[in-house]
Write a protein that binds this DNA or RNA. Structure first.
Length: 261
DNA sequence: ATGCCGGGCGAAGCCCGA
């Protein structure tokens, strides 16, 4: 069977309760990292997901951001926010240990800042956040655990990850500094799960609501699962559930997933 | 196309996302 770990920016969990429960019922992930839940912990639809058989860890925030981890297995050792960025005021990082019957797997749900427009403090914040993530990931890797850092990285890693890369030149998702910081994560020894399985172009995880981006398949791949060497050695498959974007009231992102043996 | 759609908030219109 394997351990299925997924990540999905749902763009408001309250609006997306039906879509999320439908996908969960079909895809049956063991662990699901959610981003942009856009609600405080006390208004998260907790019982809905508990009834589907999930334990829940939350770092909510009013109106914006907010991350969650759902797990069929027990959750412990929850970390709220990046330990390397304690003054961060935005709910963008949640980490927990998933207790499988005979092992533990560490998982993080990440909502990396967008960073636009690039000539502002928003971009400085993005790069600072990426520095803090790299610093923390370096520590996590010393544990030599099965580790999955899943989330909306707001990074287009390469031109092959955009339908129209020229349109993203100068954008905070694709600037050389952004891509350099992302490579910094990979160069720690983390592996992009999807790219460990395929070099195929045309695989996207986000399509803008505007300008018929979905209808034209004008997408970008910005949601990623980064794996420690221990996790990468167990990787059986990885994919993107593109069809979810074509449903009623979709998020602009779709679920990405990996299966470990 | 530095906002065309679609969220939140809160009850009109602005802030935000990528």
């Amino acid at each position: 069977m394997g351990l299925k770990i997924a990540s999905w920016n749902v763009n408001s969990v309250k609006i997306r309760t039906e879509a999320v429960s439908q996908w969960i019922s079909e895809a049956q992930p063991d662990v699901l990292c959610l981003q942009e839940i856009k609600c405080q912990d006390n208004s998260f639809p907790r019982t809905l997901f508990e009834d589907l058989g999930y334990n829940i860890a939350l770092l909510g925030q009013k109106s914006y951001n907010g991350v969650a981890i759902l797990s069929k297995w027990p959750i412990s050792d929850v970390t709220l926010g990046l330990p390397t960025f304690p003054e961060d005021e935005q709910a963008r990082y949640l980490e927990a240990v998933i207790g499988l019957p005979d092992e533990a797997v560490r998982v993080a749900s990440i909502y990396l800042p967008n960073g636009n427009p690039p000539d502002t403090g928003k971009y400085e914040y993005k790069l600072r956040w990426m520095d803090a993530l790299r610093q923390h990931a370096r520590t996590l890797l010393t544990y030599e655990e099965t580790l999955v850092l899943g989330g909306d990285y707001n990074v287009i890693p390469t031109p092959a990850d955009a339908a129209n890369p020229a349109a993203w030149v100068g954008d905070a998702l694709f600037l050389p500094d952004t891509r350099r910081h992302f490579r910094g994560l990979l160069n720690l020894g983390l592996r992009d799960a999807l790219r460990a399985c395929t070099n195929e172009a045309g695989l996207y995880s986000f399509w803008d609501y505007q300008a018929g981006a979905w209808q034209r398949n004008n997408g970008i791949r910005i949601d990623h699962l980064l794996l420690s060497p221990e996790a990468a050695g167990r990787l059986e498959a990885s994919g993107i559930d593109k069809h979810v974007r074509g449903r009623e009231k979709p998020s602009d992102h779709v679920p990405v997933w990996a299966v470990l043996n």
